[in-house]
Design a protein around this nucleic acid. Structure first.
Lengths: 146, 146
DNA sequence: GCTGAAAGCCCGTCTAC
DNA sequence: GTAGACGGGCTTTCAGC
């Protein structure tokens, strides 16, 4: 990727609401040139979208956990991500190499909700689970420096 | 949290660049009322900021991994997050309950870079590591529905 | 805490290079 | 691919309730 695009991406990752005018000042381009480049970055899928970053505790989700998942029947068709995609408590689903097949990142309000979520996951996807509770998060979602 | 604030947060998590005018239309508030609420949500730390979401592969970071970390000397002062905070490849650092002390999420370009990163982590923080390679990511960073 | 209005700035587009 | 300009819309602030 070109250096100007890289700069623009970097700026927008740090401040997703920065105006095209300010992006232009920061990169030395005109407003319309920046605008055009941003649109192309969005269309090419480099920029997938924009989001407010929210404090999970402030919205009632103080409990984070990683759940490693392994199918009961390793010969069954593997559609775990599809089966779990409607569960809003699951923030992320990664297919991984190793002892387990998937790592899920989940957020809930209470241990009771986590217990209930685990049983939903086990029955919906036909998997066994290994859960790692997050005690605190020194940092998270830091933008990739490229 | 109040319902109107919840609506606003939900909308901004889904589209971080939505205008205050549109937020007002969606919530039935005036533009200035929305603006005021958003500022208070930002000041209270409910909204931590805004970010463009970037495709890691498109910016040269196709390889994601989780690194579980455990100090060589369990009696030494635990300042692992501080010691690692300058490493840009580390996207997140969670303190966890379980066999290991921390889970790191990292993004790099190549296996060679991962190898180098692991040795930096081990020497900088005085830890042993267990690495789980991500093969694919069916979904990630889904907004918490509250 | 919300509304409504007013001024300034930004967005989005178009034309020209 | 970039610069410059223009109209419409948005942001931001300030009374007023």
């Amino acid at each position: 990727m070109e250096d100007l695009d890289r700069q623009i991406v970097q700026l927008l990752v740090t401040d997703g609401r920065m105006s095209y005018t300010d992006l232009g000042k920061a990169t030395g381009l005109s407003t319309s040139a920046v605008h055009q480049r941003v649109r192309r970055l969005e269309q090419r899928g480099v920029i997938r979208g924009y989001a407010a970053m929210v404090d999970p505790e402030a919205v009632g989700l103080p409990l984070t956990a990683f759940i490693s998942v392994k199918p009961f029947d390793p010969s069954a068709p593997d559609d775990v991500p599809d089966r779990l995609s409607d569960i809003n408590e699951i923030e992320a689903c990664h297919s991984v190499a190793g002892e387990e097949n998937y790592i899920l990142k989940v957020r809930v309000g209470t241990p009771g909700e986590l217990e209930h979520l685990l049983s939903r996951i086990r029955t919906l996807a036909g998997v066994s689970t290994r859960t790692t509770i997050v005690l605190s998060t020194p940092y998270e979602a830091r933008p990739p420096l490229t």
